[in-house]
Amino acid sequence: MPDMTPAPRRRPLWRLFIMPALLVVAAIGWSAFWFYAASEVGARADAWRAREAKSGRVYDCGKRSVAGYPFRLEVSCDDASVALVSQTAGAPSAFTARLSEIMVIAQIYQPNLLIADFKPPATIADRGQPPSMKVNWTTGRSSITGLPNNPQRASIVFDNPAIDRVNGPVQTPLAKAGHVELHGRIAEGSPQDHPVIETVLQIAGGTIQEVHPLLAQPFDADVQTKLSGLKDFSPKPWPERFREIQAAGGHVEIVRSRIQQGDLIAIAAGTLGLNANGRIDGELQMTVAGIEKVIPALGIEKMLEEGVPQATLDRVAPGVKSQDLNNLFGALDKAIPGLGKVVKQNANVGVAAGINSLGTAAELEGKKARAFPLRFVDGAVFFGPIKVAQLPPLF
């Protein structure tokens, strides 16, 4: 009997190539998209640089390259620099900051998140001069969330940052910290329409040299602020932006701040604004615990022993003449030998008592404290009745 089993039907071979063909088409399309996006990086960067240059901020890149195919864009800028012109009141001169390398990374599937890594060191120099400052760190990174023309949130973090003054081959430490973070976000409005900016600054183990012995000791800081009065984010010099804030009645609200240095703990909150002269006005309500322990570090006794400079008196006691004060101590010694020296040696006790008389008794984190206002009047800073600083105008 003949075999009647039908022969199996052959499937068309072309079906086997459908999936590989689709993958090839997708790969070609994806590659075209990636290379187009990579080509747009340079054009957009150049347009942004041109806008910033009109406001006195000139950015440059010694060598720019784009990599990261296929799933992300890695834009590398070697020998990056920024020259700032007319960014402070009455200061048309420029300074230039240079950085070894900046690497900016964006994932193709998440283009609204940009992450940047900063390679140390950085240098700062006046125009046409050798570097006067050098900045180092172990880790430096920033992130920006939002489209380039519509940023919503930004952060920058440094581990072990250190700033040194450079004088030829000699480097002198100016400031350093174990960790620094700065976060900012748009709390209200939009980048194009009256944005309100909220920021948080955190410093761990910070020290500052050449200002005051108190600042040379490690401190921690946590400060939250809210800035209002901006019209938009369009590029403009800082003095012009400060004028804009003043004209709009804007201000900086210190929502909360906490500084700790050993047993000294201080918190403050309040509002600071600008007057028509570009100087700071406002008031912060402070509560301080352990302030009596830092009085010896103020160096009042040593200052009196060596004679009080007139510049110091102008800052802390306007109207009092240095010669008059020194004559007073001499007269005390003539009347009762040694009395002037006793008064000088007990100056710290008197200052501590005077500070304790300011404000009202309070409690801070379980410790006895004093609460008092820190006033800003036309740029002058007053600690109770004592003028402690004079700040320059911002425009």
Rank of each mutant, 00 (worst) to 15 (best):
M1R: 14
P2N: 15
P8Q: 02
R15K: 10
A26M: 14
A32K: 09
F35P: 13
Y36Q: 14
E40L: 09
A45S: 14
D46E: 14
A53R: 10
D60F: 04
R64F: 10
C77L: 05
L84V: 04
S93D: 12
S93V: 10
T96Q: 05
L99Y: 06
M103C: 06
V104E: 10
I108G: 12
N112P: 09
L113P: 01
K119S: 14
P121E: 09
R127C: 05
G128W: 05
G146R: 03
N149D: 12
N150E: 14
V157L: 13
P161T: 10
D164R: 01
N167Y: 10
P173W: 00
L201Y: 05
Q202D: 15
L215P: 07
P218E: 02
K226M: 14
S228K: 14
G229F: 03
F233C: 02
F242N: 08
E244V: 03
G250I: 04
G250W: 02
H251E: 13
V252F: 02
S257P: 06
A266K: 02
A268S: 12
E283P: 08
L284M: 05
T287Y: 00
M303R: 07
M303E: 05
G307P: 11
P309T: 01
Q310D: 05
A311T: 13
V316R: 00
S322V: 10
N327H: 14
F329H: 06
A335S: 14
G338V: 03
L339D: 10
V342M: 15
Q345N: 12
A347M: 03
A353D: 15
A371G: 11
F376D: 00
A380D: 13
A380H: 10
F383I: 05
K387E: 02
